[in-house]
Design a binder for these strands. Structure first.
Lengths: 250, 250
DNA sequence: GACTGCGGATCGTCGGACAATCTGTCAATC
DNA sequence: GATTGACAGATTGTCCGACGATCCGCAGTC
């Protein structure tokens, strides 16, 4: 007990400092993919990435193995990595599981989270509603991310957090977020408020139901968007549509 | 069709043909870890693996990235990969999620699986009971694997199958299977029979409940075993106990 | 128009190399 | 005797260059 020093080091957050180069590469490529810099189906040529990032092939390839385990890229032997493209069926499975896991996370949050966390969730929900009113897609997305960070950070199960974060990355890949949908937005906000309310009441069952329902509704919208998209661009080769750089569905 | 091919088409199982060397390395090391050849906490020296497997460091390192994504090995910068060691708390989280996911898989199986699959599950369950009677741990484990293969192969959600398979690998790491427990075994078998019966009745709710309960019961036994183990060997450095090669708790 | 063959583009794998970093040992110090 | 600090060994992180294997698209042929 050195008086002031409960925290002499930065070990509070868990400190995932990307010490190694390969991790920086991994983070950079993941960010680029989720940001849409690389379109689904697009090839990722190793040497090009090396040049872009100023690293060797070894580092790039090791980073690719990680991303391929996350299913953000798909690699077929001797063809190299391509940005993953999710089929409608995969999306359905993804959302179905997400509903289950998010339901579990919500239930756990309701029973285990601190009062402070519950309060923070409520404020984040209000913040989201406010951002939605502003019309800024960017603000909305950031507010939603903050909301989920609170939920996942206090559900008491790091494993489910990690899996769900992986899901979000893959769903971002779809570019079919229900939040874009102006018609769906008010319902979405209402569902989240219901969730916050369930947390306040510490009603685990209601929280689980609200979270699951929210995901299932989002799923319906997303799948509809996806189906419409696939109706335009033929999904003949599921997972490897030849897409030219720099443009996407207009 | 060259006439002589016993495997003209290995597309039945999903065909994970380890075409590339790195995948063979990955499979070999994963098998070795789950088989207990490498003990949890044990370091995996790259060059040693290279020598053992007759491959280059690049291949080994790429395989390590995959295994590290699966959480079968843990890597800290400049210290290299070590076989993952699961803490009691991680085990708790793992089992909690497994209960949720296996419950979902069972529910999905009950509603979607073919009658043939349901029949196969029943037979596999009977087979398991028979193996249990024989007393051969090996036969029991194989029968249980077969049972799960049927469940996961016909639940209609590849994603949940994959995640659960990853869980099983990590749980195997614990060497704390409830099936070993002679006292628990009859209950375990009864629970599985109840699950098979729920499938036969196509009762999704009962199936989900049975599967979840089964996992939760197994969890209790496993955690108890774990706690007892940890009481012996001090878990001072969670994840990096200095363990010598070739031996484990006797 | 379908088939064949060729060449370029990439990947898969290897070996070697070097600095950076960690670990354990051992001596010097208080 | 316990602590500190320096040293050496071991191992990783990263790079480079190389080579054959494989895939893809294109030209030429029947």
């Amino acid at each position: 007990m050195t008086g002031r020093g409960p925290e002499p080091a930065a070990h509070r957050i868990g400190a995932l400092r990307p010490d190694t180069l390969r991790r920086k590469v991994e983070d950079a490529v993941r960010a680029a993919i989720t940001a849409g810099v690389y379109a689904p189906g697009e090839r990722l040529i190793e040497r090009a990435l090396c040049a872009d990032l100023g690293v060797s092939r070894a580092s790039v390839r090791e980073a690719m193995r990680r991303l391929e385990a996350e299913k953000l890229v798909h690699t077929r032997p001797h063809r190299g990595p391509v940005v993953a493209a999710i089929s409608v069926d995969e999306a359905r499975q993804l959302y179905a599981l997400r509903a289950v896991l998010e339901g579990y996370a919500a239930q756990a949050f309701a029973t285990q989270a601190s009062d402070a966390a519950v309060g923070a969730f409520g404020r984040a929900a209000a913040h989201l509603r406010e951002a939605a009113g502003s019309g800024s897609t960017d603000r909305v997305l950031r507010a939603k991310t903050a909301l989920y960070d609170i939920l996942l950070g206090h559900c008491g199960n790091d494993l489910v957090s990690e899996i769900l974060r992986g899901f979000y990355a893959r769903i971002t890949l779809l570019r079919a977020t229900s939040l874009m949908h102006p018609e769906r937005l008010p319902h979405s906000l209402a569902e989240i408020d219901a969730l916050a309310e369930a947390f306040r009441r510490r009603d685990a069952e209601a929280a689980q139901a609200a979270a699951s329902t929210h995901v299932r509704n989002a799923c319906a919208v997303a799948l509809e968007q996806l189906a419409r998209r696939d109706a335009r661009s033929p999904p003949d080769a599921p997972g490897t549509p030849p897409i030219r750089r720099g443009s996407h569905a207009g």
